[in-house]
Amino acid sequence: MDAGRKILLLLAVPVLLIAAWWAATAGSTNFFWPPLAQIAGTFGETWFTGRFTADVLPSLARLLVGYLAAVVLGVGLGTAIGSSRTLRGLLEPVLEFFRAIPSPVLVPILMLFAGIGNEMKVLVIVSGCVWPVLLNTVEGVRALDEVLRDTARCYRLRRRSRLIHLVLRGASPQIAAGARQALSIGIILMVISEMFAASNGVGFTIIQFQRSFAIPQMWTGIIMLGLIGIVLSLIFRVVEARLLSWYTGLRMSQREG
């Protein structure tokens, strides 16, 4: 497939969709569906006259802190649990329960402990994101290849190098899968914790717009959230592709073979 065709395929439908939206709402007088042209016009003034630093960046900072803490915590605990049969047996049903609790209900609980400040929001994000990372790490550590483990033992790899070179690397595809799930949960929790109780943030701002019936602004907020989701998932993909290039290659060679 040549590059031109590729770009055409990549952009055709998105462009068509946006054009359709534009056309369908052009001249719209419906209060809830303002013309896309109007939304686009308000986007800049809504977000780039102070709100970006006042709302978007604080949201993203909380997300980043909470998310990274959750990944570290999840990988650490997951490795410990995955390596010990007893620990796994002991904690499996408990983890199963915690995982099954929809994480947004943690917001009211954590508000009791941590008030409504930044700590609460970061805690909410940590407590929601940690489960997919943890459970996937457990699975990844458990599914490590037996022959590879034996090889590491035969060559007398020390505990530390076994952890770094065998366990964490070996589990990294699953860890990445967990981290990807955690990212979308993290974004949801970022928004929800702000909708619940906050004085700044994207989620807070959008709800304010909605309550004050600033409809075009509300639409720009929805678009803003969408863009955040898309950009973060693109960044995640780039990082993942770098870290897991060996895995992609391995999978491809297995598929051919």
């Binding site: 037996e146 007398r156 690397r169 070996g170």
Partner: peptide, 20 residues
């Protein structure tokens, strides 16, 4: 336990090398 001064070559070559 695995003694020093010993090396093993396994049958499952595809699984005994670190793919990463």
């Amino acid at each position: 336990g695995p003694p020093p001064g010993m090396a093993v070559v396994f049958q499952e070559y595809g699984r005994s090398l670190f793919p990463w």
